[in-house]
């Protein structure tokens, strides 16, 4: 990660020094400002979903859901304590339902709690990251929205290829993590 970052930044700045040196600082400032406005909108989105999640927890729905999904979560991520498994189950179910915004906060919390502070990436953390990076989603709402906006004859006809593709790559991802992290649990 750090090398990719360094590579992007140094090459871009070197390129810009020749072509358009004025743009360097403008681009960097715009970027950090964008980060702030992105964060502000994220606070709003996360506040909504963390609120809803806490509601579900307090009326007992979350616990029922966890019991249903827990066997799957245990198989994928290995055994964890109740708090972590609850977050993992939430992340899985929000992803499947296509509520991407609701899946992120529990994932961040789960990874924080799985971290033992020794800087080591465990299999559970890697699995959570890879599954989310594969973007398994039953209904890609954004794409369908754009398609119908632009007057597509059949906005939903990409559903099937999307679903098959993401199922296949998620399976490959799970397989790869199991192969490469099988030794450290």
């Amino acid at each position: 990660m750090q090398y990719i970052w360094l590579f992007l930044v140094t090459t871009s700045i070197s390129l810009l020094l020749f072509s358009n040196p004025n743009a360097i600082l403008t681009a960097m400032t715009t970027a950090t400002q964008n980060a702030v406005s992105l964060c502000i909108s994220l606070v709003g989105i996360y506040a909504l979903w963390l609120g809803v999640i806490n509601l579900a927890k307090n009326c007992g729905i979350l616990q029922t859901l966890c019991k249903k999904i827990n066997p799957l979560a245990k198989k994928l991520f290995g055994a964890h304590n109740d708090e972590i498994s609850a977050d993992l189950s939430l992340n899985l179910s929000a992803n499947l339902l296509g509520i991407g915004n609701a899946s992120t906060p529990p994932a961040i919390r789960a990874i924080k709690n799985m971290d033992k502070g020794n800087g080591k990436l465990t299999k559970g953390m890697a699995m959570l990251f890879v599954i989310n990076a594969c973007g398994l989603q039953i209904v890609p709402t954004t794409v369908i929205g754009i398609r119908s906006n632009l007057g597509s004859a059949n906005p939903t006809d990409i559903l099937l290829p999307c679903l098959i593709t993401s199922l296949a790559t998620t399976a490959v991802g799970i397989l790869l993590v199991n192969l490469l992290f099988g030794h450290n649990k």
Binding site: I108, F129, V172, L180
Partner: peptide
């Protein structure tokens, strides 16, 4: 995901993620 953790090197996991994304 990893901003609040002690993990600084994603190593193989990052490549698996990128590979899957590309594969799709």
């Amino acid at each position: 995901y990893f901003s609040g953790t002690s993990v600084k090197k994603l190593g193989v996991a990052l490549w698996i993620g990128l590979f899957c994304s590309f594969l799709s």
